[in-house]
Structure formats: C-alpha cells, structure tokens
Amino acid sequence: MGKALGILWEIFRGSLITARHFTVNMFFHTLNLVGIKTRRKGAVTIQYPEVKKPLASRHRSRHRLMRREDGKPRCVACMLCATVCPSDCIAIEAAEDPDPEIQKVPASFVIDLNRCCFCGFCVEACPEDAIRMDTAVIDLAATSHQDLVVGLDKLLG
C-alpha cells in the first residue's frame, strides 16, 4: 500500500512537471504577445523559412570558385580536388591558357551536388585557394537531378 501510494505520488509529480512547463512557457508567450520583450522565450522553436539560424563561420555549404583580380577563375585545372573527392562528384575539363604563368584553365567545372557529401576535402586539397565552401547556401533542394548538377556559371556567380 505504501509503495502504491509512493508510485501514485510520483505519477502526480510527473504531471506537475509538465504543468509547470506549460504555465512558465505560457507566461513568457503572454508577455511577448503583449509586447514586453524578455530574454527568455516561451519556445525554443526557430520559424525556419522566415527566421534562419546563423551558420558557423566554418560551416560547409555549397561550393564556389574564386576569381583572380582580372576576373578569370583562379582554378588551374590541376585535378587535385577531383582526385581527392571521395564521392567522385567533380568533373573538370582543362583548356590551355595563353598566359604562360597560368598554363591551364578549366573549360568546364561540374560539381554533381547529388553525390557531394560536403566533406570539404576539395577545399583542403586546392593549392590555389580556388574552391571554397562558404556560400551559406544550404537549402539545396530541386525537383530534378539535373538542377543539382552545377557548372562554371553557377560556381563562379
């Protein structure tokens, strides 16, 4: 009997905890509703499409290709990124550059984001600092696979 009463008491205490959560959160919701700003909010929810959480500075998002000062891509088509890529999602076609200092430029630089695992190895491998993953584009959703295969125009843009 004593044990049963103890269980009953614990069950009752459980509902007190949830009731406390309810009243405390309701209190802050009401304060915010009538316009009183409080540091603590009634809910921890972030209303995503309207409100976005700030990304960490080293967050790996969609890739971009850097340009030289004269506007040409920094990439020299050395294929290091394509080689190191564990998902095999980078395809580069090289072309000749008239400048003997540069020698090679990518004729096409295609990243298949369907396959990309966002490991960031390409960024680390690049000797020219030509590829970076700091665009903060994280809502990579598309209605077809082709829309997620991005080429030079998108990566440089």
Partner: peptide, 10 residues
C-alpha cells in the same frame, strides 16, 4: 497548442 507549449515548442 497545449502539447507544444508543454514541450517548449510553438
């Protein structure tokens, strides 16, 4: 709404 408020949601 009540379940949400109880669980710190909206």
């Amino acid at each position: 709404k009540e379940s949400a408020v109880m669980q710190d949601r909206i």
